[in-house]
Amino acid sequence: MIPLLDIKAQYASIKDELDTAALEVLASGEYVSGPRVEAFEARFATYCGAREAVALNSGTSALHLALLALGVEPGAEVITVAMTFVATAAAIKYANAVPVLVDVDPETWVMDPASLERAITPRTQAIIPVHLHGRLADMDAILEIAKRHGIPVIEDAAQAHGAQHAGQSAGTFGDIGCFSFYPGKNLGACGEGGAIVTNRPELAAAVRQLRDWGQAGRYNHVRHGFNYRMDGLQGALLDVKLTHLPYWTERRREVAAFYDSHLSGSGLGMPTKPRELEHVYHVYAVRSSERDRLREGLMDAGVMTGLHYPRPVHMQPAYQDLGYQAGDFPVSEQLAAEMLSLPIYPELTAQQLQRICDALLSLCEDSHAEGYAA
């Protein structure tokens, strides 16, 4: 069986480095925050081209604290997309703000700037574009709209470590960028982890206080804070993995290029070509009206697939209180019904990729023969 993601293969490729780093942390007794987390923060800030990075216990915590650091008020509106993992909307709720959803562009699958513009009201206090699947949102257009209305921008870059536009990296376009280091991410911890990056030192300082019980010095609690610190083990392991991330990113792009080449003409809806380095392919998804049948057929052929995401935020039972209905975001709803995520990770071999493509092409040929439209 070819897995959708092979975390064990990644571990095996750098086992000695990770084991050494983990044992050093265990011997040090510095298990919460500490020098290894600080070292990772410095290196990650440099990697992103940001002045500051603050490590946290999850990407969701990063979004939550970004909203608080920017002073988003209870009851304020925060605009994001319907096509995202639910954590984006959950973080807005954590801040006691109101998620306002917009649709995505039918070609790029990221925030539609025209929909964003229409959603802005006097109550809008932040905008959260999501770099879905590792593709940068249209930050030029989004930032122009945000600047014109005087609204801060928080990038949900949980899937976009290293994506770039015109030499600038994901997370550094807006006021704050938020990353997840969940194990399956392009840069994944051996457990939970997250971070914010920013070029505004006052925001980094606020997040550092908020992550550690609102402290400005030990036992001096100046904010209502949280226990959102990164542990020393994750900091050390992420620091090791960060050195390998450029190579892993290049391999992901090579895998995506293989799919682009071998699946063209299949009748599948393919990801549109990004401009240069704007996509890091956390997910490689194709589209088909026969998505579920293709998924079942690939499983029978020994290929695991994923769904990112099968139900938009506004269709989730927990978010019915937002007041949206089926049909409100037609692009997101169609993508949710049609997208199928193929295996993509640096350790995939040419033989595995050929096997995946052969199986999928065979299923597509059967679909055409039976009169199905992809």
Rank of each mutant, 00 (worst) to 15 (best):
E365T: 02
L70Y: 14
Y345P: 03
L335C: 05
D6T: 03
L4C: 02
G327R: 03
V78S: 04
L340Q: 03
F258A: 08
L237V: 03
S33V: 01
L322C: 09
I145R: 11
A205T: 08
Y182W: 08
D231P: 02
G184E: 13
Y324C: 10
F258W: 09
V283Q: 07
A336P: 02
F181E: 12
L245S: 04
A62S: 12
P152R: 07
T124D: 11
G269Q: 12
G191H: 04
E202G: 08
V313K: 06
V32S: 14
H224N: 13
T243Y: 12
L360N: 05
T272Q: 03
A126N: 14
K185H: 13
E347N: 09
N220I: 12
V100E: 06
P201E: 15
G214C: 01
T46K: 04
C178R: 11
G150T: 06
L101I: 08
A50K: 01
A160T: 07
D6M: 00
L298A: 01
D112M: 09
I154C: 13
L342N: 12
L18V: 10
G323M: 12
G297M: 04
V25I: 15
R51M: 04
L237S: 03
Y31S: 10
G49H: 08
E144N: 13
A76E: 01
P317F: 05
E192P: 01
S13E: 13
A359H: 01
G71E: 06
H308F: 11
A326F: 12
A216L: 15
H221A: 10
G171C: 05
V78C: 10
Y372H: 14
A373I: 11
Q325R: 14
A350D: 13
L187V: 07
A50N: 08
Y319M: 11
G134H: 09
Y94L: 11
M339K: 15
A170W: 11
S33G: 10
C190I: 03
A374V: 02
A21E: 05
P312R: 05
L363S: 05
T20R: 00
P74Y: 09
